[in-house]
Every structure is written in structure tokens, then in C-alpha cells.
Amino acid sequence: MAETNPAVNPADTPAATPAGTAAPETAPEAVEKVPTVIADEVHIVYKVMAGSGGKGTAASALSRLVRRQERPTLREVHAVRGVSITAYKGDAIGLIGRNGSGKSTLLKAIAGLLPPASGSVYTSGRPSLLGVNAALMQDLTGDRNVVLGCLAMGMTPEEIEQKYDEIVDFAGVDEFIDLPMRTYSSGMAARLRFAIGSARTHDILLIDEALATGDADFRAKSEKKIKDLRDEAGTVFLVSHSLDVVTDTCNRAIWLDKGSLKMDGEAKEVVDAYLTESTRKK
């Protein structure tokens, strides 16, 4: 792992990001920019079993074993290739790129949930992904899921008690809260999940798209909630395909293409460049 990297770090001198590396001896700006997330040459590799690739029978497995061959269907997917980013307190950074360009994977690595194959991610405090879907269980009632989800996010029972009514109100599922979640409509379930996930404040907030689900009323509520969380949080990363959300809410944007960092700068600039590139190909 490259711990000390005296070579030029592309993120420190990008096209348009203000170079906020703190040099105390010269301080032309009144406010020193404090980095909250530093990604250093991060590579993430998934090992996946591909679909076809020979017969999946016991006989073929045995012959492979005898001939000492690796499973032919085991493939490495290089999801993130050498990305380096420095994010500062107060930044709201949009991650844009085509499907499969590694945005969600990078986000998970920043959150510390997916260890990088090489390189490192340094953060101040604990970044949290907004989204608590995996902790909820379909067979449980809504209110038990609220408690479970909040506990999973690290809230204490006292905090949960305080926030419980607020969460249920926000989701608008009052009458159904004592029914199992498997009986909820997809909209209700999505609203409750979002309400639970946004119940606590975060220092470093990571949001992975799918905010634009639900009816118009809920979309407005959730966008406002995101803005509130953003104001309370130090730093926000937002993965989105909705480019106007990125230009509206973010001050900076990063364009990932096939796992590599293609551009890092002012939100409007990067989005425009991305749009130009995407529409030009067709």
C-alpha cells in the first residue's frame, strides 16, 4: 500500500478545485480548509463467479482439481482504478458517471465498508451511508423495524424514543406502523426506510441515489430533508444520475469513467463536460 507518495497527487492540483492544502505560513484566505476525506490511489477489485464457463458438474470440478486449475468462472472486476480525492469540510460533492463506472463502489470504500485492494481512504470520524435497508426485516412490524434500524445505525434507546414519532410522521405510515413491513406498498416501505435512515445527523454523509422515488410530495420532503442534513453535516457525497440535483445541491463534482477519475472540479463545469461527452457519442 502506498503510504507515502511524494509524486504529484492529481487531486491536489485538479482543474478547478481550490487548492486548499494548508500552508500556515502563507494564509491569504481567512478560513483554512480542513480536509475531511482523503482517498489515496484507491483500487477496488471484486472477485465474482461468472455465469457460463464449462459444465458445472462434479466430474468437471474433480478433473479441474486433479489438473490443479483455478475455477475458470472466477473473474476479477476492477471496479475502481487508482482514484485519489481530497474532500474538505463544507463540500458537497456529486459523483457522476455512467452505470457501472464505480461510483457506488467508491462510496462504499469511503464509508469504510469495502476494504480497498490497494491504496487507502482516510476520514475524520465515521462516514455513514444514508440507507438502512439491509437491517430491516420484512416479517417485522413497522415499529420494530424503526427500532431495529435506528439501533443498527448506532442510536441509543433514549435517542430512538425521542425520534420515534418524528420518523413515523415523516414517513406518513401512522396507521400501518403495527403491521409487518411485507404488507406495505413499495412507496410506503421506501418512505419508512428513508425516514429511518435520515433520523440521525452525520459528520460525513454519503448518499447513493434512488432519492427520486415516491410521489411528488415525498420527493419534495426528501429533498428538503437532504438539504437539512447537508447543512448539518460537514461533508456530503452524493451519487446521482439526476444531473440537475447535482448542479443544484453540490458545489463540486467528480466524474468517474470505468473506475478512473476523469474530472474533478466545479459542479457546473464537470456536469457540462459529462453531458457533452455523453450526448456526443450517440
Binding site: 489515496d40 482516510y122 475524520s124
Partner: peptide, 28 residues
């Protein structure tokens, strides 16, 4: 920790992390 002469004013990511007390997000 070494910095190449022409970049004496730009700390490496690891140095920057240490300076501001950032820790590895997936560290144990």
C-alpha cells in the same frame, strides 16, 4: 516522510491525513 524538492509545499495524502488527524476508514 519524504517530499520531492519541487513539491515541498504540497504534502502527500498520507501526511495530510496525519496532520489533520484523519484515520483509515476501513481500519481495524
Amino acid at each position: 516522510m519524504s517530499t520531492s524538492p519541487e513539491l515541498a509545499g504540497t504534502p502527500s495524502p498520507a501526511e495530510l491525513a496525519e496532520k489533520y488527524g484523519l484515520s483509515k476508514s476501513s481500519g481495524r
